[in-house]
Amino acid sequence: MNVDEKLGPTRRLALGALTVLMAVAGFAAGRVTFNPNGAVVQPIQFNHRKHVKDAGLDCSTCHQYYADHQHSGLPDLALCTGCHQQPMTKSPEEAKLIKLATTAAPPAFRKLFRLPDHAYYSHRRHVTLAGLPCTTCHGAIAETTAPPPGPLVQVVMKTCLDCHARRNVPTNCIACHR
């Protein structure tokens, strides 16, 4: 085995490390590619900034449940057509919206900020009772001009616990786990 002889220990180590690195990268790529809960693709390239900042709409216009429900709610396209019955701009997305809204089964907006099933979160408790601003968990979603593929703020358990600790709110496992 001549090749064996040529490779010095350093190069051999480098080769091994490279292989491990490639395998790790491959594993990650495989997991992402075949992830059943992949990137969130919305039917319409909704422009939050235009609606919230420019048009001055309230969050509850579309997310109508946030004040007194667990979920904040997502609008269906029928709600959009309340304003966009006729084209208001020349935006191709708007044209797409009007077209989609008239189909038999219009596609729905998909949830972007998602919690696993075993976590209980109530918008009423946090927004109405505790008075948290939306940005605490949703970040600068109001500034976006197109739907982001993933959440702007990664909320993990530590995020919740830190926030509770900062605000001196008790942390009890079953208050959020179910």
Partner: peptide
């Protein structure tokens, strides 16, 4: 058994509302 603690969460929230 959790003593239906999810009901406690809702009941407490309702009481606070």
């Amino acid at each position: 058994c959790t003593f239906c603690s999810h009901r406690l969460q809702k009941a407490r929230e309702m009481a606070r509302v």
